[in-house]
């Protein structure tokens, strides 16, 4: 299975990129590790690909205020290996390290990963789950204008919310004392069959929790009401399971060859609890 006819071009600066996207028929390609599968089985046909992987200005990790900002074309491998990310945001480090395998992570980018939900043959999005849990945001550029998008809204969209000339500059992850990412899969390097990201803090002596799950349904899903229950009742409370059920009563659980919908429903409270416990331990929170 090989791609249909297409044109390839490359942007070396964000200005280049802006101009190329302005033509209207171009699709940005970062690592290509998400796109290629669909291009090869021709479930996706594009007219022009713009390679953005060499936009060095968008490959960075920096701490900015109380958030970690990661340039969109930073590879998953770079994020996974970054000591600063590991120290400040364990959930992100773990999620980046759990995408696919070494080879794919060497090309795949965080920006491409969070757009994974809208590719025809996959809805993988490990980094997106973390971004949703911490209630992060995306910096999106269109022409000369840069705007901030709420990540939860972005990630929950049915189809890609970016306009034709938009591209993602960076992802912003607000930090917390402790965070963790728990991921179930059939094999180690395999699509997740349910993952949970948790961010925990103590603010004025009170527990604060940020929570999201992935691959339970087809989009990363923030679980605010469950987070509130945990904050109020503690992680060991039986109400946590009830809150999970209530929060997802209208969610369509995903069915896949790897795991059926019933499975995802059953493991939801398990991964939620495990991720929060792990985040609490990591953050030194009792």
């Amino acid at each position: 299975m090989r791609p249909a006819e297409l044109r390839y071009t490359r942007a070396l600066t964000t200005e280049d990129l802006g101009q190329l996207l302005a033509r209207g028929d171009a699709t940005p390609m970062a690592g290509g590790q998400g796109l290629m599968r669909d291009l090869r089985n021709r479930s996706m046909v594009v007219s022009t690909l713009v390679d953005i992987s060499r936009l060095t200005e968008l490959a960075y990790v920096k701490e900015d205020g109380d958030a970690l900002e990661i340039g969109a074309v930073t590879t998953l491998a770079a994020v996974a290996a970054d000591g600063h990310v590991a120290a400040r945001c364990a959930a992100l480090a773990t999620a980046a390290a759990r995408v696919a395998d070494v080879q794919i992570r060497n090309r795949g980018t965080v920006g491409g990963n969070v757009c994974g939900s809208w590719l025809p043959s996959t809805w993988s999005n490990d980094v997106g789950v973390v971004l949703a849990a911490c209630d992060g945001s995306l910096l999106v550029q269109n022409g000369a204008e840069v705007r901030t998008l709420n990540a939860r809204e972005f990630l929950a969209a049915r189809s890609n919310p970016l306009a034709a000339r938009d591209f993602i500059r960076a992802l912003r992850f607000p930090l917390a004392a402790g965070s963790a990412y728990v991921r179930l899969s059939r094999r180690w390097a395999d699509a997740s069959i349910g993952s949970a990201a948790a961010f925990v803090d103590r603010v004025d002596g009170r527990l604060r929790v940020g929570l999201a799950v992935g691959r339970i349904s087809e989009r990363p899903l923030a679980l605010d009401s469950v987070a509130r229950t945990i904050e109020a009742d503690g992680i060991d409370s039986p109400t946590v399971g009830e809150a999970c059920a209530a929060a997802t009563s209208s969610v369509e659980f995903a069915d896949s060859v790897q795991a059926d919908a019933e499975y995802r429903r059953s493991v939801l409270p398990v991964i939620v609890t495990r991720s929060v416990r792990e985040a609490m331990t990591a953050g030194g929170i009792q």
């Binding site: 044109r7 490359r10 190329l20 060499r54």
Partner: peptide, 16 residues
């Protein structure tokens, strides 16, 4: 950088 816009004419469409 053959494939990049930087080295090609702005108006020229990318080729196959």
């Amino acid at each position: 950088d053959h494939a990049s816009l930087a080295s090609s004419d702005d108006e020229a469409a990318p080729r196959n």
